Simulated scan of single mutants.
Amino acid sequence: MQVETLKDVLVWTREFHRNLSDCLHHCALNNENSRAKMLLDYLARHEQELSQIVSGFVETAETRALNTWCYDYMEKHPILHSAHCDAPFQDLQPDEIMGVITDQHEQVIDLYRYLHARADIEATRELMEELESLEEQAARQMSQGANRMQEM
Rank of each mutant, 00 (worst) to 15 (best):
Y114N: 04
M98R: 01
Q48T: 09
M128Q: 00
A146V: 01
E32Y: 02
S143E: 08
E47A: 05
Q137N: 15
A123K: 07
L43E: 00
Q107C: 02
L115W: 06
L40K: 02
L29Q: 12
R148C: 13
I53E: 10
D91T: 13
L80K: 08
T60Y: 08
I121K: 15
Y71I: 14
Q48F: 07
E75P: 05
R18V: 07
I109W: 03
H81G: 14
D8Q: 01
A117V: 12
M128R: 00
C70E: 03
C27K: 10
H77K: 08
Q52H: 06
H81K: 14
E126C: 12
G145V: 09
E47S: 05
S143T: 13
E96K: 07
E132M: 09
C27R: 09
V108G: 05
R18P: 04
C27M: 12
G99A: 10
S133I: 12
V9W: 02
E126V: 15
L111R: 02
D95I: 04
T102M: 01
E96Q: 11
V100F: 11
T68W: 00
C70T: 07
E136T: 11
A36Y: 08
R35V: 10
T5N: 13
T68A: 05
A65S: 09
H105F: 06
Y73F: 12
S55Q: 13
E15H: 14
E129Q: 09
M1R: 06
E136N: 09
A138N: 05
N19F: 03
H17K: 13
A87E: 10
C23P: 06
N30S: 09
R140L: 13
L127C: 01
E151M: 13
T124D: 14
F16L: 08
T63S: 04
I101D: 00
E151R: 11
L131K: 03
L39N: 01
R18K: 15
L50M: 08
M149Q: 15
A65L: 02
Y112C: 04
S51G: 08
V9I: 06
M142W: 03
I53R: 09
Y73P: 05
A87M: 10
L66S: 02
G99E: 10
V100S: 06
V108H: 03
H25N: 15
L115D: 11
D110E: 15
L50D: 03
L131G: 07
Q107H: 12
E15K: 13
S143C: 06
